[in-house]
């Protein structure tokens, strides 16, 4: 699917340790880009961008360490590899977690509060316009979600829900508290593919 208008097909990796991997893969494929499930270090060299999916951040963090992917991935992101963390992925990217000494990749200058809304009974969804992403209302789904309690100067806030920061961008890094992969709307995936093209 290489045409003048859409340019080269992007190869988008999805960290495939645990969580909503296939859901992201389907969105990427629907947008006619190549989706690769990343479980091995060598694969980091072959991708144009990486999605850190929703799931359990502690599980993914442990596996990043045990498989030796943590350091090379951090290095890649710092060198400019476009990366997008949804929910658990956002926690992996944060430099600081509230009431938790643990830091995983620690590349985005923000403080994230885990399970910020409570337990599963407090999971919810809303529809909102996120101007940076699209001028349409898009569905935002929060599942035992985190939110951001502090952002550094280089971090741009893309969306707030009830005064809490839930989507941000810092250079090559995008993070969302919610799960666009669980909806039919591909606007966020489209936006991320755009980040990978640049």
């Amino acid at each position: 699917m290489v045409t003048e208008e859409c340019g080269k097909t992007m190869k988008i990796g999805i960290l495939g340790f645990q969580g909503a991997v296939i859901e992201h893969q389907q969105h990427i494929q629907q947008l006619e880009q190549e989706a690769v499930i990343v479980r091995y270090r060598e694969q980091l060299e072959t991708i144009d961008g990486l999605i850190l999916p929703g799931g359990e951040s502690t599980t993914m963090g442990k596996l990043l360490n045990r498989t030796g992917l943590m350091d090379p991935l951090r290095e890649k992101i710092l060198q400019g590899l476009p990366v997008w963390g949804t929910c658990a992925g956002m926690i992996l990217l944060a430099k600081e977690l509230e009431q938790d000494p643990l830091v995983h990749l620690g590349v985005m200058d923000m403080t994230v509060k885990r399970n910020a809304y409570g337990t599963q009974i407090d999971s919810f969804d809303v529809r909102m316009v996120v101007p940076e992403i699209s001028n349409r209302e898009i569905p935002l789904v929060f599942i035992r979600a985190p939110y951001i309690t502090r952002v550094g100067k280089a971090v741009r806030v893309l969306c707030r829900v009830d005064d809490h920061i839930v989507a941000v961008r810092e250079r090559n890094m995008l993070a969302t508290s919610f799960h666009p992969e669980l909806t039919d709307d591909s606007a966020f995936h489209q936006y991320f593919i755009g980040m990978c093209r640049k």
Partner: peptide, 18 residues
């Protein structure tokens, strides 16, 4: 989206896990 959808979504987050 109803509560049931959100609950199915939580199960999706557990996939690939133990």
């Amino acid at each position: 989206m109803g509560k049931y959808e959100l609950n199915k979504n939580l199960a999706q987050m557990l996939k690939g896990g133990v």
